[in-house]
Amino acid sequence: MNNKQRWMGGVVLLGGGVLLAALLLKGNEEIEQDKAQAEITHPIPKTDSTPKTAQPAQDSDMVSLQPLAVDVETEKRLLEEQRRSREKAVAEQEARAAEFLKMQQEAEAAAARKAAEEYAALNARRAAEQESSDNIPPEVAEDDKAKAQRLAEEKRKQDEKKKAEQQKVDQQKADADKKATEEKRKAEAEKKAAEDKRKAEAEKKATEDKRKADAEKKAAEDKRKADAEKKAAEEKRKAEADKKAADEKKRKAEEAKKKAEADKAREIMESGDKNWMVQVALAANQANADAVVSKLRAKGYKVTTSPTSKGIRIMVGPAKDRDVADATRKKITSDDSLNMKSAWVIDWVPLDQR
C-alpha cells in the first residue's frame, strides 16, 4: 500500500467520524427539544416555599379547595409519551448510525477498490515503462520483500509450532510407549521371578526328595550289604571251621596212615623182604607220568608208578639186589634219548605188602 492509499483511507475515516459526531449532536438536540416542549405543554405547578403567618379566619371568609392542574392518569400518560419519544429518538439515532456505518463501509470499499485500480494501473504503467526488475519502485519492492519476509516468518512460526506440537505428541507417545514398555518389562520380570522361584522351590523339593530316597536306598543297601557280609562272614567262619575240622580229620587220618605204613615198612624191613627200585622221575600229573612211562616201556623197561603227596613217582624195577638196580640206573642215565640224568636207587616196598 502506497502513501496515496494511506491518505485516502485517513480522509475517509475522518469524514466518517465528522458525520457520526454530527448525527449524535443532532440526536441530543432533538431529545432536549422534546423535553422542553413537554414541559411547556404540561407545566408543573410550583408551591410557595415562603411560610405565611397564620391569620385568624374571619367568619365571613369562605374556604375553598383548588383543583390540581394534572391528575394521576394524565401524569402517567405524559410519562408514557416521554418514554415512547425517547425510545423513538434512540431508534432513529441507531438507524442513522447504522446507515452512516453502511455508507462509511461503502465509501471505504469504493476507496479501496479505486485505490486497487489505481495501484494496478500504476504497476501496469511501470511494468510497461521498465523492463528490468531493478527499476521497480523502492516502496513496492520493499512492500513485496516485507510481505515475503512476513509470510516466511509466519510460515516458519507455523512450522515451528506444528513441529513443537508434533514433538509434544511424539514425546507423549514415546513416554506412553516407554511407560507401557517399562510396565510390561516389570510385569515380565515379576512373572519370571515368580517362575524362577517356583522352579527353584520345585528343584529344591525334588532334590530333597531325591536325597531322602537316596539316603533310604543307601541305608537299605548298607543294611543288605551288612547282612550279606555278616552272613558271608558267618558262612566263611563256618566253612573255615568245617575245613579246619576236615583238615584236622584228614591230617589225623594221614598221620594214622603214615604211622601204619611206617610200622608195616619197619616190620617188612625187619623181616628182610626188600625190593630195590630205580626212581627216574616225579611227574606233576598223570598225563606227564603216562608220557614218561611210554618212553621207558618202549625201551623194554618194567615201569611202576606210585602216587605221593608231592606227585606221581615213576620207578623202574624192582630188583632183588642193589647192584643190579644201580646197573639199571647207569644204563638209563647214559641213554640220551630218555634224558633222565637224575635217576637214583631206592629201597621200595609195594603197597600190598605194607
Rank of each mutant, 00 (worst) to 15 (best):
G10T: 08
V12K: 00
V18C: 10
L25P: 00
K26L: 10
G27S: 15
N28H: 12
E29M: 10
E30T: 03
K35P: 01
K35I: 06
A36T: 05
I40R: 03
I40P: 00
I40N: 06
P43C: 13
I44V: 13
K46Q: 11
A57T: 06
Q58T: 10
D59Y: 04
D61V: 13
D61L: 05
L65C: 05
Q66H: 07
P67Y: 05
L68P: 05
D71P: 04
T74I: 03
K76A: 12
R77Q: 11
R86N: 11
K88Q: 12
A91E: 15
Q93V: 03
E94W: 15
A95N: 15
E99A: 13
Q104H: 09
Q104Y: 08
Q105E: 14
Q105M: 12
E106H: 06
E106L: 07
E108L: 10
A111C: 03
A112R: 02
A115V: 04
A116I: 07
A116R: 01
Y119N: 02
Y119E: 09
A121R: 03
R125N: 08
R125I: 02
D134T: 04
N135H: 04
I136Y: 03
P137V: 00
P138W: 09
E139H: 09
D143G: 07
A146C: 05
R150C: 07
R150L: 13
K157I: 11
Q158W: 12
Q158H: 07
E160G: 09
E160W: 05
K162H: 05
E165I: 00
Q167H: 12
K168T: 14
K173R: 14
A174N: 15
K179Y: 15
E183G: 12
E183V: 10
E190P: 06
E195N: 14
D196A: 14
K197G: 14
K199W: 12
T207C: 04
E208K: 02
E216W: 07
K218Y: 11
K225T: 14
D227R: 03
A233L: 11
E234Y: 02
R237H: 15
R237V: 04
K238E: 10
E240K: 00
D242F: 07
K250Q: 13
K250F: 12
K252D: 13
K257Y: 14
K258Y: 14
K259W: 13
A260Q: 09
E261V: 15
D263I: 04
A265M: 08
A265F: 11
R266A: 14
E270T: 06
W276T: 00
M277I: 03
V278E: 00
L282M: 10
N288T: 11
D290T: 04
V292G: 02
S294E: 13
A298N: 12
K302M: 04
V303Y: 03
V303F: 06
T304M: 06
T305G: 05
T305F: 04
S306L: 11
S306C: 09
I314H: 00
M315W: 03
A319C: 07
A319Q: 09
A319V: 01
D321H: 02
D323V: 04
V324Q: 02
K330G: 09
T333Y: 03
S334W: 05
D335A: 15
L338D: 09
K341M: 09
S342R: 05
S342L: 09
W344S: 13
W344H: 08
V345P: 01
V349K: 00
P350Y: 15
